[in-house]
Simulated assay, not measured.
Amino acid sequence: MRTLLAASIVALSLLPCAAWAQMRPMSDTELSTVSGQGLFAVSNSSYSGFDFTRISLDADVTLNANLANMRLGEYTYAPRNGSGADLDIGALQFGRTDASAAQRLVQITNPYFEFVYKNTAAGSGSQREIVGMRLGFDGISGDIGMKIATLSGAMRIDAGAAGIIDSMNDAGGGKRWDGTCAGCTPLANVGGVTAGDANGPSRDFWIAILKQPVTFQAAAGMPALTEAQAGIWLNWRDKLTALNLTGTVPVNNAAGH
Results as ranks from 00 to 15, higher is better:
S27R: 13
W206H: 15
Q127M: 08
S8L: 12
M155G: 02
V193L: 07
G38N: 08
A85I: 06
S48Q: 08
D138M: 06
R203V: 04
L67K: 06
N252C: 07
D170A: 10
A161T: 12
G172D: 11
Q37N: 08
I165N: 00
D60F: 11
N244V: 01
N110T: 12
A102E: 09
T53R: 10
L57S: 03
L5F: 14
T97M: 07
A208H: 01
L57G: 10
R80A: 13
A220E: 11
Q22W: 08
D143A: 09
N69R: 13
A159L: 09
A65D: 04
A149I: 05
T3S: 11
L92T: 00
F115I: 13
R203G: 03
M146H: 13
A182V: 08
G38F: 03
N235T: 09
A91N: 05
G132L: 10
R71V: 11
A19K: 10
L243I: 12
K239N: 14
N69C: 09
T180E: 10
A41M: 14
G136C: 11
T29I: 08
I9H: 10
P250E: 06
D86W: 03
T248D: 04
G172N: 14
Q37A: 11
D86H: 06
D170S: 13
L39G: 09
L5N: 14
A159M: 05
V42Y: 12
I232K: 00
G192D: 03
M26W: 15
F52T: 00
R176G: 04
L57W: 10
A78F: 06
